[in-house]
C-alpha cells in the first residue's frame, strides 16, 4: 500500500509538473511560464521587448505568457500550476497564501496607487459612510476588494453593510458606467479610463491601503530552480529600468495592451505608479501586515492562521537581494 502510494504520487508529479521528469538530467526547466497584466506595466515592457525569450532561450528554455485579468486570476493560475511567476497585489497574495497556495513573494514590480473607491457624479455618494446598503462592485481576492474592506473598516462598517457585486475589474468598470452598481472598488487602467471617459470620481483615496505590486513564484519552482528565479528577477529589473527611462514608450505600450487612450495610460504611469522599489523589504512587510489585521477581523483570513508566520514564510527578499546585488 505504501509503495503504491509513493508510485502514484510520483506518477502524479510527473503528470502535473511538465519538465519535472527531466529535472534530474537538465539543470533548468524546459519552459518558464510568466504572466502579464495591465496592472503590471513592467510585465508589458518585458513581454514587448522579448528579453525573456532572448535570455532564457540561450539555455534552451521556452517562455510562455498568460494574461492575468486580476490578482485573483494570477493566484488561481499559480495554485493550479498553470504559470510559474504571477503578478498580484501583496495583500491578495497573502490571503491566498494563508489558504494554502504554495507561493513566495520575491520581487516588487511597482508601488502603485492603483485602487480607490469610484462613483459617478449624481450617485449621492461622497464618503465611505454613504456606501451603506449600496451596490458596490469589486473583484474578490484582489487589492481593490481588500481596499474596500479596509475603507469600510475605517468608518466601522463591514462587507455585510453593503451589497457586494463580485465582478472582474473590467466588468466592474462597465457596471459602474451603466449605473448597474452605485460604486466600484476600481483598478487601473480601468479606473483611469472611467475617470477620463465617463467623469467618474475617486471619492475615497488612500495610497497607504494599496499593498504593492508583487511578483510571486510557485514554491515548487523556486525550490527546484532557484537560479532561474534570480534570472527572471534580473529580467524584470532590466524591463523596469527601461520603463523608468522611457516613460513615453511605457505609456504607449500600456495604452496598446490595455486598449486605452494614451492620456489614460499616462495617468496610471505618471501619477500612480512608483517604480523605485524592487526588493520586498520592511515597508512591504508592514503594509501587508496592516492589511492582514483587518482581514483577520473581517474573516477573510481564517482565525486559526498564524499571520506572522505566514508572512515570514511568504516574503523571500533573498532572491532579489542576490539578483540585484543589494540594490
Amino acid at each position: 500500500m505504501k509503495i503504491n502510494g509513493i508510485r502514484i504520487a510520483a506518477l502524479l508529479i510527473v503528470v502535473t509538473f511538465p519538465g519535472g521528469g527531466v529535472a534530474f538530467a537538465a539543470p533548468g526547466p524546459a519552459v518558464i511560464r510568466l504572466d502579464y497584466a495591465t496592472y503590471n506595466p513592467v510585465s508589458l515592457v518585458l513581454k514587448d521587448k522579448g528579453w525573456a525569450e532572448a535570455d532564457l532561450g540561450k539555455d534552451g528554455i521556452k517562455v510562455e505568457w498568460t494574461l492575468s485579468e486580476g490578482s485573483n486570476r494570477a493566484l488561481a493560475f499559480l495554485n493550479s500550476n498553470s504559470i510559474d511567476f504571477g503578478s498580484t497585489a501583496g495583500a491578495a497574495a497573502l490571503v491566498s497564501r494563508s489558504n494554502g497556495n504554495p507561493i513566495y513573494g520575491i520581487y516588487i514590480y511597482s508601488k502603485p496607487e492603483w485602487t480607490a473607491l469610484v462613483t459617478l457624479p449624481g450617485s449621492g455618494i461622497s464618503r465611505i459612510q454613504d456606501l451603506k446598503g449600496k451596490k458596490v462592485a469589486a473583484t474578490i481576492g484582489t487589492d481593490p476588494y481588500i481596499f474596500l474592506i479596509r475603507s469600510l473598516d475605517t468608518v466601522g462598517l463591514g462587507l455585510s453593510d453593503i451589497e457586494l457585486v463580485p465582478l472582474q475589474h473590467g466588468d466592474g468598470a462597465n457596471a459602474l458606467v451603466r449605473k448597474q452598481v452605485d460604486a466600484w472598488a476600481g483598478l487601473d487602467p480601468h479606473m483611469a479610463r472611467v475617470q477620463v471617459e465617463d467623469g467618474a470620481t475617486l471619492f475615497y483615496r488612500n495610497p497607504e491601503f494599496n499593498t504593492y505590486g508583487v511578483l510571486n513564484v510557485r514554491k515548487e519552482f523556486a525550490d527546484k530552480y532557484p537560479a532561474y528565479v534570480d534570472r527572471v528577477i534580473s529580467l524584470y529589473e532590466k524591463a523596469k529600468g527601461y520603463a523608468r527611462d522611457h516613460r513615453p514608450e511605457l505609456i504607449a505600450i500600456l495604452a496598446r495592451e490595455g486598449q486605452v487612450k494614451p492620456e489614460i495610460a499616462k495617468i496610471q504611469i505618471d501619477q500612480r505608479t512608483d517604480l523605485s522599489v524592487s526588493t520586498p523589504g520592511d515597508a512591504f512587510r508592514g503594509t501587508i501586515a496592516a492589511a492582514a489585521q483587518v482581514l483577520l477581523k473581517g474573516g477573510q483570513i481564517r482565525p486559526d492562521v498564524d499571520v506572522d508566520a505566514v508572512i515570514r514564510d511568504y516574503i523571500r527578499p533573498g532572491f532579489a537581494e542576490v539578483a540585484l546585488g543589494g540594490k
Partner: peptide
C-alpha cells in the same frame, strides 16, 4: 454574473481566494 450570494457565487469565491 455578479451574484453576491448563492451556490454559484461560492463556486467562484472559492477559486478567487484559493480555497478549493
Amino acid at each position: 454574473l455578479g451574484a453576491s450570494r448563492g451556490l454559484g457565487f461560492l463556486l467562484d469565491y472559492g477559486q478567487n481566494i484559493s480555497r478549493p
